[in-house]
């Protein structure tokens, strides 16, 4: 039985993600279907048709922009399901990923400017942002989607 595996990595600028097949070669990969859920309970979905010249297999891979899918200029932070389908619309493999580039950049900026001289509320805020960012890592590693969304929503409120 074939072992299809894809790895997905969001760009820190949130404008695109990179997807790559790292397992067996996926035959007849035709479309990449992306659906997203956000902390405000909204959803989005889009589809990318694999072009001639695209190569999903490692060491190549495909970079997909938010605009390719009709998501706007960036991928909002949330949980993304990326499915590879064949020409019969059969799902071959799926990856579920948390995209958090937007809040990560905000926390990075704030943290680079964290100083002892900041007032207590500012310091608490940046500490809390870092704690929630760590929580996102824990939730992602454990695959706890509810916890991921809960912490992401709180973090979005704080940045």
């Amino acid at each position: 039985m074939a072992n299809y595996v894809i790895e997905v990595e969001e760009n820190i600028n949130a404008e695109s993600f990179f997807v790559q097949s790292t397992g067996d070669v996926i035959p007849d990969a035709t479309t990449i279907v992306v659906s997203a859920s956000y902390p405000d309970e909204t959803t989005m979905a889009g589809m990318y048709t694999i072009q001639q010249g695209d190569d999903l297999q490692q060491p190549a891979g495909i970079t997909i922009k938010a605009s390719d899918l009709g998501f706007g200029s960036i991928f909002k932070d949330g949980i993304y399901s990326i499915k590879i389908k064949d020409s019969q619309d059969t799902e071959l493999v799926e990856a579920v990923e948390g995209f958090i580039a937007v809040v990560s950049v905000e926390v990075m900026k704030n943290s680079l400017n964290y100083r002892q001289g900041l007032d207590t509320s500012q310091r608490w805020l940046i500490q809390e942002q870092n704690r929630l960012l760590s929580n996102l890592s824990y939730a992602a590693e454990l695959g706890l989607l509810d916890s991921f969304i809960e912490n992401l929503g709180m973090l979005q409120n704080l940045v």
Partner: peptide, 23 residues
């Protein structure tokens, strides 16, 4: 304070070179 700054520097390094366009 050092730990929070170090975490941010690590994030910057891990997402380089794109991060250099944002920071």
């Amino acid at each position: 304070t050092v730990s929070i700054n170090l975490n941010a520097i690590k994030t910057y390094i891990d997402s380089f070179p794109e991060s250099s366009e944002l920071i």
